[in-house]
Structures are given as structure tokens and as C-alpha cells.
Amino acid sequence: MKINFSFLRSLDFWVFIVSLAALHGVSFHVMDVTTATDNVDCVTYLGLAEFDFDQYVVRKYRILVPFIASGLDFLFGGIFDYLAPWTFNGDFSMGMSFLIVNNLLFALAGVFVFRYLYNSTGQMFASFVGLISVLTCRWTGYLAGLPLVDSLYFLVLVMVLLGLRNRNSRLILWAIFLGPWAKESFIFIAPIIFFYAPIKKEKQILYFFISGILVFASRLLIDYNSGASTFAALEEDFDHFNNIAVSLERLFSFHGVYELFSVTGFWVLLLIPALLSKTLKSHLLSLHGFEWWYVFSILLQAVISTDLARMLFLLTPVLALLWGRIVSDYFNGDLQFVTQERKKYE
């Protein structure tokens, strides 16, 4: 039987491989040097992977990533333990299972980020620059290397951005059904979908209703098994709004400035040529309405959370779009750029 290797000619495949390769080293190092049990979020998700639902009332419903990691651990845990570094502290096989799941989800998100950027800039080089800015963010490796579920939420958000930009109803539909399972804060993204998605409002209402029923039913089942009240989670969710004052105080402090800088890092230097050439304003104005609402939504999610930088990390796809646009200013086209650079080395 002849094997078809046509996928090797797919740009999506190579973007996925490059994203996976870029993520693995950093995320593995994070897993190796970090004690996951010192992080309360990680403790919750490790517990869910063991089907222990007696966890923090908000996080215990985010079961998709922990369950997939649990399946990987069941199938390959023995092999992972055999390969475990002697310096590793903790359950290596489960940690490795989470790492694989998170790396794959972030790599898939990388494909969608690249498509999102290329749809806007039309340039390969600029799109790769933007993608690299996401992959090299300090939070990407951290979230990919630990037993956390942010990878799925990030993937859903990028699907929303790409789906709205290129009017892809299928991506939007996937986001509607995956989003509530990723994180409850998807509720802040749902209105953006409702008003900007290329799907009739009547159908959207039906899709959101079905999605909500499925999630609510799973919550009832989880609460039944853990003997907890479903309303306790809702009360805890609303209680997050009490964090706004604390978050704003932290934001307008030296530590807050550092947290903001940690999201972009020295990629912010790309603003200098944009300011010198007076193109920054035009780049900002070129953002679509849904992208501005997306930025506002992430800022809102950040201030009701006490983990500012980790939440602001979700802005990186839009920031990557800005970096890509700035870079694309300096090249009239990929072919011309490649030709000019090649002549320098001939």
C-alpha cells in the first residue's frame, strides 16, 4: 500500500511542527524545575486527572484537558516513568501527559495564529514574526509545561479571532461548544461572537442554548459526585468582581508595569519604527471592531482576576497582529524581500 505524504506540502503542517518544536524545550524545562503541587491551580487539575472532583468550586468543571491527560497517562505512563529524569520531583508520567496535551493544543493554536496574521498581512515573513512573538512569550512555555488548562482556552480564543476575521462559521461553531468547557470566562467572549459572527442570530441562540445545556448537565453530574452545590460556583464567579480594586492597585504599581511588560517583553521595541514612520495610528485603526471588543474583554477578565499577566497573555494574538503589520510595512512583498536578501549573499 502506497502511503500518501501530501501533508508534507501543507503549510499548516509545517507551522504546527515549528510551533511544537519551539514550545517543547521551554515547556519541558518549566515542568522539570517547577514543583506543580506548589501551585493551587495545578493541584486542582492533577486531582481532576485522578477523577477526584472534590476541588476548588470554579476550576473543577474544566475537565477536558485533565481527562485527556489522564488517558495519555493510562496508556503511556509506564514508558514516561521509565524516561523520567532522576532530578524530577513529583509524578512525572502525569506531568508529561499534561505537557504533551498542552503542547499539542498550543501548537494547533499556533497554526490558527499564523492564519489569522496571514489573513491580515498577506506576508509569510510578517506572519512568522507575529507567531514567534506568541511562542516566545514567557507565559506560553509556562502554561504549556504545567498541569494547567489555559492552552485550550487560548486555542478557543484564537479560533474566535480567526473565525470572525475570515468569516469561518465552522470555527465559530467549534468555539461555541468548546469555550464553556475551557473556562467560565468564555461568557465574556460570547457576546462578541453573537454580534460579529457570520451565523444567523436565531441559529446562534440555538447553538449557545445546546452548548449551555451540555455544560450545565456536566456540572450537575460533577456536583452530584462531589456532594457540592452548583450555586457555590456561581457565587464564587460573581465574587471575582471584588478583585477589581486590588487588581487596579497592582496594575498601577511597579510590579504591575513589570507584569504588563512580561507579556510583550522586548517585542514592544517594534513600536519604535512604527512611531518614527508615523504608521502606528493607522495600524491601530485598521483593527476590526470585534478585535477592539476582544481587547476590552481580556482587560476586563484581567482586572477581575488577581493574576494580571497570565490573563493579559490572551492579548498576544492581537499584539502579534500589530507586530506583523509593523514588519509588513517595510517589505513590498515576500518575493521581492527574498530576492533582495538573496542577492546580498551571492
Rank of each mutant, 00 (worst) to 15 (best):
E184N: 11
L234K: 03
D81G: 02
P147H: 08
F13W: 05
V101Q: 01
Y258I: 10
N103W: 00
L251I: 05
L135D: 04
P180C: 14
D38V: 06
L322N: 01
F177E: 00
D52H: 12
S253A: 14
D237Q: 08
S127G: 08
F106W: 07
L300R: 00
Q340V: 00
I187E: 06
Q340R: 06
I100F: 04
V43A: 11
A175K: 02
L48T: 04
V30R: 14
R62E: 14
K344V: 06
I3T: 03
F188C: 13
F114V: 02
S151R: 10
S169H: 08
T140N: 00
I100V: 12
S226K: 10
E202Y: 13
I222W: 04
A144C: 13
G77W: 05
A69E: 11
R165G: 07
T121E: 07
K281T: 12
Y345W: 10
V295S: 03
E346A: 06
K344R: 11
D334W: 04
A302Q: 05
Y330K: 11
W293A: 14
N103K: 04
L173Q: 07
Y82S: 15
E50H: 14
M311Y: 14
R138T: 08
A217C: 06
T35A: 09
I213L: 13
L248K: 01
F337W: 07
